[in-house]
Write a protein that binds this DNA or RNA. Structure first.
Lengths: 126, 126
DNA sequence: TTAAGTGCAAATAGTTTGCGGGAAG
DNA sequence: CTTCCCGCAAACTATTTGCACTTAA
């Protein structure tokens, strides 16, 4: 049976209290303020368990896994140039794949180039 | 200046001729039928260049990068249990982030659990 | 001719895991 | 007690890179 673990709780609390989308390393660095003896392996282990049980959301961007304490399905808009990640609400039913009406959406990721980076790029090439 | 390279062309042709979403390893295995002496490093190198220049789309699923020869922005529906990836058209303007109307979308990923896997899981827990 | 492309193998980055010790129930 | 959890360090996987050699232009 799954136990109450101070470390797991602390990791979950940290994720739920922040609005960015930290990597494992970033969670590690933050949680160490609370529990200096915690190890990176434990952070990885618990992040994976929390994601598997659906308590948190995870997705990969630029080769690193990012985590989100808000486990309600919503939209992540990610700029592939600067790496910025923004949250947006998911309009009800809008994204339902027509060939699988019961597909259970857990996360939506939109990749592209934000207008800031687009204007910088056009300056450079000018 | 960028040159015409038989290997790069062959990799691009392979990607454009298939409708799945292969990993680098899968492209390597396929392209080796055409050019047996090609190396995995070259496949990685060219896939990265093609993705950087926008000729192909790439995204990470289950810790591996997948590639798509269709570089028109469209929706990838990914089941996080069985790993199936499906293509869907992107309704014009539907996903435009309201706080950045000029955000240039290159790819949309919808993660979740397909109905097949969902029914299998409910059987197991029964 | 010469800069871009390549094979090879070593290196790297991110993540996972086995194990002996520690803590929750 | 006994089962899960943890720190540690080694292992693993996917990907990148340096270098000497090829090849397209």
């Amino acid at each position: 049976m799954k136990r109450f673990s101070k470390r797991r709780q602390c990791i979950l609390d940290d994720l739920e209290s922040r609005t960015d989308h930290p990597t494992a390393e970033m969670v590690y660095s933050s949680v160490r303020n609370e529990i200096p003896s915690i190890s990176l392996g434990t952070v990885y282990r618990n992040l994976k368990e929390l994601a598997d049980e659906g308590s948190i959301i995870s997705f990969t961007q630029n080769g690193k896994e990012h985590f989100d304490g808000n486990n309600h399905p919503h939209i992540h808009v990610c700029c592939s140039v600067c790496g910025k990640i923004g949250d947006h609400p998911l309009p009800k039913g809008l994204f339902q794949p027509e060939n699988d009406p019961d597909f259970d959406i857990t996360n939506v990721i939109i990749q592209g180039i934000c207008s800031d980076c687009a204007s910088k790029q056009s300056e450079e090439s000018a």
